[in-house]
Each structure stands twice: as structure tokens, then as C-alpha cells.
């Protein structure tokens, strides 16, 4: 028992140690891109077309652009470690403070979609696998591939058209009540459930044809018990990994969903920042979203180790 726990903690520790250089890498990439990829002088671009030379000089100084590149990088890293991602040009406030206000909306939206979408997908996947090659399965496959193919932005518009414009039962945009969250979560969650349903189905079919499931059935166990105790646990293993990776897609989808439903999340903030050329803001949003993605996958890998005992011996 003890050595098992030891193995596990060693694995978790190693996994955490991998996450740090990854986040460092992410910030480095973001830093380099802003300095290298942006055509022309970032200060000039940020200041806009009608800026006075003094303003440009001030921005340049604020961003530390008047120093050598490597020094800029070190300052940027030091500030990042201290939780300082610069000041937003538009809000005239620290970027982190603005993002912290918006983050709960994005986190809630993503979390609801992961949990609801994944649960729904699991149920559909298991049911279609159990009723393989029946009309239930065929229907499930068709619905899943259709929902998997509908682009988020169009689904959002169509849901508004049906439920807000047509039936008038749900609000079009904004926040306030739980009703405001129904359409955004549906918009983003449908694709998630379709993805998980497809994966669960194929994983479950594979597990159901294994010898140990046949043995379990042969010794007279009830169907429900075979499915839950023997099949589902092993079906979950590939599903968990994909759930972690899908969070990346959901975070991207959240940008679109927030933009459609005017939710004040990080995505709306980023899109707003782009049209305002508020580069510190965009940079902060990108770093934060990427860091959360790295963190979620770290979490998933740890859960993974608990579900799949084989992982510890690697």
C-alpha cells in the first residue's frame, strides 16, 4: 500500500515538474511573438494612428521597449512570476485585475460544458454501444456526427433564433439569471457531448468484446453489474484523456460563445482587446487561458493515475 502511494506521488510530482517549464515556455512564446511577429513598432501600433510622439514614447517606456530585448524578457518574466502582466491600454488598470473579474464567467461556462456535456456523452455512448447495430445505435451515431459537425458559432445563432426570437422562452444575451446560461452552455456543450459519445461508444464496444467481460457474463452476472463494474471503468480510460484535451477546444469555443451571447468573460475581453489593439490585454488573456489549459491537463493526468493503476509503473 505504502509503496503504491509512493509510486503515485512520484508520478504526480514528476507530472507537476513538467508543467512548470511548459508554462515558462508558453510565456516565452507569447513574449517572443509580440516582439517579433508584430509588424513595425509595437508602441506605435498600440498607440493607434492618431497618437502623438510623446504618447508613443510613453508606451514604449511603459513596456520597457527602450531596453535591450533580453533585458525586456527578464523583466517580463520577473513581472509574470509576481503576477504582473502589464497594464491594459484601454482600461488603464493592471491586466491581471481586469482578467480576474472576467475569468469566473469563462471558467463557469467551460466547467458546465465539460461536466454536463461529458455526462451526456457518456450516457449516449454507453447506450449506443450496448444496443450496437440496432436502430437506437444508428440514430445515436447520426445525431452524434451531426452535432459534432455543427460549428459553435452557427449553433449559437440558431439556438437564439429558435428559443429567443421564435419561442421567446430564453433571453438572447447578457447575464443575470440562470436562464442566461442555458443557451451558451447548450451551444458549447452539444459538441462536447457528441465528441464524448463517439469516443465512449467505440471504447465501450472494444471493452465489451474482451475476454474478461465475456467471463463476467459467463459466470452469470447481471447485465447492469457487468456494464458498470467491468466495462465502464475501462471504457473511461481513453475518455478521461480526451476530456482533458477537449478543454482546449472548449476554451476556444468559449471565446465564440461569449462573443455571441455577450458574456463578459475572458474571450469577450480578448476579442475586445484585439479591436482596441490592447496588446498587453490580449497577451494576458492568451497566457492565462494557456496556463489554465496546462493546469487542467495536469489535473487530468493525476486523475488518470488514480483510475488506471498501470500508469504508476511506467
Amino acid at each position: 500500500m505504502l509503496w503504491k502511494a509512493l509510486y503515485l506521488s512520484k508520478y504526480i510530482l514528476r507530472r507537476i515538474l513538467i508543467a512548470f517549464p511548459l508554462i515558462l515556455g508558453v510565456t516565452t512564446v507569447v513574449f517572443v511573438m509580440l516582439r517579433v511577429a508584430l509588424p513595425g513598432d509595437p508602441a506605435k501600433v498600440m498607440a493607434g494612428d492618431r497618437a502623438t510622439p510623446e504618447l508613443i514614447e510613453q508606451i514604449r517606456h511603459n513596456l520597457g521597449l527602450d531596453r535591450p530585448l533580453f533585458e525586456q524578457y527578464l523583466i517580463f518574466l520577473r513581472n509574470f512570476v509576481q503576477g504582473d502582466l502589464g497594464r491594459s491600454v484601454k482600461f488603464r488598470e493592471p491586466v491581471v485585475r481586469v482578467i480576474v473579474k472576467a475569468f469566473p464567467f469563462t471558467a463557469a461556462l467551460t466547467f458546465l460544458c465539460v461536466t454536463i456535456g461529458t455526462s451526456l456523452g457518456l450516457v449516449i455512448g454507453v447506450v449506443t454501444a450496448v444496443y450496437q447495430r440496432t436502430w437506437i445505435d444508428n440514430f445515436g451515431i447520426v445525431v452524434a456526427v451531426l452535432f459534432y459537425s455543427i460549428p459553435t458559432f452557427w449553433l449559437g445563432l440558431m439556438l437564439i433564433l429558435i428559443f429567443s426570437v421564435g419561442l421567446r422562452i430564453l433571453p438572447v444575451q447578457g447575464v443575470g439569471t440562470w436562464k442566461h446560461f442555458v443557451l451558451p452552455v447548450a451551444t458549447l456543450g452539444v459538441g462536447q457531448s457528441a465528441l464524448i459519445a463517439r469516443l465512449t461508444r467505440s471504447s465501450m464496444i472494444e471493452v465489451l468484446s474482451t475476454d474478461y467481460v465475456r467471463t463476467a457474463r459467463a459466470k452469470g452476472l447481471a447485465q447492469r453489474r457487468v456494464l458498470i463494474r467491468h466495462a465502464l471503468q475501462n471504457t473511461l480510460i481513453p475518455v478521461i484523456t480526451v476530456v482533458g484535451l477537449s478543454v482546449g477546444g472548449l476554451l476556444g469555443g468559449a471565446v465564440i460563445t461569449e462573443s455571441i451571447f455577450h458574456l463578459p468573460g475572458v474571450g469577450s475581453l480578448a476579442i475586445d482587446a484585439i479591436s482596441n489593439r490592447d496588446y498587453p490585454m490580449i497577451q494576458g488573456a492568451v497566457i492565462l487561458v494557456a496556463a489554465s489549459f496546462v493546469f487542467v491537463n495536469l489535473l487530468v493526468d493525476i486523475i488518470y493515475a488514480f483510475v488506471d493503476p498501470r500508469i504508476r509503473y511506467e
Binding site: 508554462i23 512564446v29 511573438m33 482546449g248 477546444g249 476554451l251 480578448a270 492568451v286 487561458v289 494557456a290
Partner: peptide, 11 residues
């Protein structure tokens, strides 16, 4: 490490 669409938006 970057969510795809976010990276594309940034680029």
C-alpha cells in the same frame, strides 16, 4: 499547450 483557436486568434 495553447488551445488551438486561442493561438490562431493571437497569431
Amino acid at each position: 499547450a495553447f488551445p488551438g483557436l486561442i493561438l490562431a486568434i493571437w497569431l
